[in-house]
Nucleic acid binder design. Structure first.
Lengths: 199, 199
DNA sequence: CTAGTTTCTTACCGATCGGTATGTAACTTG
DNA sequence: CAAGTTACATACCGATCGGTAAGAAACTAG
């Protein structure tokens, strides 16, 4: 009963190719023809395997967060709050200016202004980003309860600040800042965030 | 010899309408038909008055930096370095989450990944952003020479940091953070940037 | 082999993209 | 008035957009 012609491409590898295209060109800037060319998959096969452009992007976003963006969830598991933040800041540098991958961040790039057609995609990206910041806040609240945060430091404030910093790193990378500059920036940011001030 | 039929629209007002469309939809997400509808200008009149899409965007970008984004150059004129940074951070909040204007920042939005067709636009936006950060660095170098900066603070590092923070504010605004949250973020950032630490 | 199933290939769909040719309307000058 | 100039409005251009119909090709099951 089963059988049928075997597919001539590896779905995961094709998804990686699609990720690279979306990452470097954005959602609106990517045409189906760009995807089929990079994935080595014919147009109808793409639709059969991954759905339409929006569904494909959804799958790509999942793969992004589990692959290159996986450091965000791993960083939260660090034992000390400072290590959490350090992992996020330096992870953002490697993600957005690392070798072999496009500059910038897929998530940051796709939450920006877009045409009405891409608005649902933007909304979903925004929702995922909110969830990410909420997870960081929760982690920092735990740190506060464990006495792992400077006393006057509000977890929500720090989560907002670190999110803004990692996003700022992504924008700088997209704008052409070098990896060296970004590493310097991450260091400055980390020092600033964890320097206990007079209040 | 001169004369001719007078134009039926105000070029500056039309440019403001174009700015609003580009601001809320981005460069790639904006179609010429979106612009003509918002500007109240027919298609050939638009091309005659402002050139093609890319030239129009260039003019819009100028208007953006002189209008809503004008606070960036004004902030540099503040007498104390801390006031410069404060003006930039809170100005970014008003720009990206103020009333009556689209969320986010036109410049931050257009420096992100885009299709090959829009790459020249992205490059120009990136160049302008680099120039803006360089101007801030120059201003902070002057502050250092005047003893207006904490002793261990490198102007280039602080300029990078403040740029990343304002960009982070813009991304947060695009992602749906409220003006209140952004004001809180700006305050936290300012306090941390100008809290002299142990080094 | 044949029947059934799934994928690949080619070719196409209507809609929209950025940009323009063409003719007419509105104005200044003489 | 007529001549010259500029901007208006309609209609159109080829190219590309996202998405699909139809049939050939490659496999499994009997």
């Amino acid at each position: 009963m089963p059988g049928g012609r075997p597919r001539a491409f590896d779905p995961d590898a094709a998804l990686d190719s699609a990720l690279e295209v979306f990452w470097s060109q954005g959602y609106e800037g990517t045409a189906i023809s760009d995807l089929t060319a990079a994935m080595g998959v014919n147009r109808p096969s793409l639709y059969a395997a991954f759905g339409n452009k929006e569904e494909l992007f959804h799958k790509v976003l999942d793969r992004y967060m589990q692959g290159p963006g996986g450091f965000t969830s791993r960083a939260l598991e660090a034992p000390r709050a400072r290590d959490v933040v350090e992992g996020l800041l330096y992870g953002a540098v490697e993600l957005t200016a690392g070798p072999g991958t496009p500059r910038g961040c897929l998530s940051v790039g796709c939450v920006q202004a877009c045409g009405p057609e891409a608005e649902p995609v933007r909304q979903e990206v925004a929702a995922r980003r909110k969830a990410g910041e909420a997870a960081l806040r929760t982690r920092l609240e735990r740190a506060r309860d464990e006495g792992d945060l400077p006393g006057d430091c509000d977890p929500a404030d720090l989560a907002r600040l670190v999110t803004a910093l990692t996003d700022g790193i992504a924008v700088a990378a997209a704008g052409g800042s070098s990896r060296q500059e970004l590493l310097q920036l991450a260091g400055t940011a980390l020092r600033m965030a964890f320097t206990p001030g007079p209040g």
